[in-house]
C-alpha cells in the first residue's frame, strides 16, 4: 500500500487577538502546527501501514518553514515527507491547492490511498479533499469515521452523516477525509524524534511538478479575498438569580414571551 497523507500548516490557535489601538490582528507568538484534523489522517495512514505493510508519504503545500512540521510527521511514523513550495504557489485557494497537490502526488508514482483531515482549522472549508479527488479523477468519501476493510484493491469505510453513518465501498486509488472519531493519534517516540531530526524533506517547486502556471497560486484561484473583518459580538448578558425553582420560572417566562418554538 502506498499511502499519501495531505497536511496543512495552521496557526496553533484560531483565537484572533486584536490590538485594540491599531485594530490589527496580533500574530506574534502564535505557533504554527499541523492542522489537528490532519494528525488523525497521519495516524490512520501509519496504522494501515503497520497492519498491512506499505509506505506512508506526507505531502504539504506551503512556505519553506513547513518542512519543520513535516519532519514531525516522520516522528509520528511517516516514512517520507515532501513539501511543495514555490513563490508561484502563493495565494492559492482550495482549487489551486488541490491542483498543486494532485501534481505532487502524481510525481510520486502509483498511489493507493490518499488521506486528508476532514478540514483545516484556519479555513474550515473541507474542500481540498474532494477537490483533489476530482483533479486526480478518482472517487472520494468524506467524514470517514472508520475503515472497515482494505482488500483486493477496494476500501470499505464508514462515513459519518447527520443521522448516523453509511458504509461505502470504493476501488483504490481513492481519497478519504477522516474525522476525529477514527483514532487517537499517538505521541511520537523518542527514537522517532531523533530520526525526524535527521530526515531530509525534499522541496518540489512548480517546475519540478510541471505545473501549468495559470492553474497555481493566485492566478489559478477563482476565488479572491476582497476584505476581512473581525465580527463584533455585542451580547447583552442577563443573569437570572434566585433559587433553582425561581430561576427556572423566570427563564421559562422569558422564553415564552419571546414566542420561540418551544413545544414539540
Amino acid at each position: 500500500m502506498n499511502i499519501v497523507v495531505c497536511v496543512k500548516q495552521v496557526p496553533a490557535t484560531t483565537e484572533v487577538k486584536m490590538n485594540k489601538e491599531t485594530n490589527t490582528i496580533i500574530r506574534e507568538g502564535i505557533e504554527a502546527i499541523i492542522n489537528p484534523f490532519d494528525t488523525y489522517a497521519i495516524e490512520e495512514g501509519v496504522r494501515i501501514k503497520e497492519q498491512g505493510g506499505g509506505k506512508v508519504t506526507v505531502i504539504s503545500m506551503g512556505i519553506p518553514k513547513v518542512a519543520d512540521l513535516l519532519r514531525e510527521t516522520i516522528a509520528l511514523g511517516a516514512d517520507e515527507a515532501v513539501l511543495l513550495s514555490d513563490k508561484a504557489f502563493a495565494g492559492a485557494d482550495t482549487l489551486a491547492t488541490a491542483y498543486t497537490l494532485s501534481l505532487g502526488i502524481k510525481k510520486m508514482g502509483p498511489v493507493d490511498l490518499i488521506i486528508c483531515g476532514k478540514q483545516a482549522t484556519d479555513g474550515d472549508t473541507a474542500q481540498v479533499g474532494p477537490s483533489l479527488a476530482a483533479k486526480l479523477g478518482i472517487p472520494h468519501t468524506t467524514y470517514v469515521r472508520k475503515i472497515e476493510e482494505i482488500r483486493e484493491g477496494t476500501i470499505r469505510c464508514q462515513r459519518l452523516t447527520e443521522d448516523g453513518y453509511e458504509v461505502i465501498e470504493m476501488p483504490l486509488p481513492a481519497v478519504i477525509t477522516v474525522v476525529k472519531e477514527i483514532n487517537e493519534p499517538r505521541i511520537p517516540s523518542f527514537k522517532g524524534l531523533m530520526k525526524a531530526k535527521k530526515a531530509e524533506i525534499p522541496v518540489w517547486t512548480a517546475d519540478e511538478i510541471a505545473a501549468d502556471e495559470s492553474l497555481i497560486g493566485l492566478k489559478g484561484s477563482p476565488t479572491w479575498v476582497v476584505s476581512t473583518f473581525v465580527p463584533q459580538h455585542n451580547v447583552n448578558s442577563e443573569m437570572i438569580e434566585g433559587k433553582p425553582e425561581e430561576q427556572a420560572k423566570i427563564l421559562v417566562d422569558k422564553l415564552l414571551s419571546l414566542q420561540l418554538p418551544l413545544s414539540k
Binding site: 499517538r186 505521541i187 511520537p188 517516540s189 523518542f190 527514537k191
Partner: peptide, 8 residues
C-alpha cells in the same frame, strides 16, 4: 502503553 511507545 503510551510510555512504552514513547521509548521513555
Amino acid at each position: 502503553t503510551v510510555l512504552a511507545q514513547s521509548d521513555l
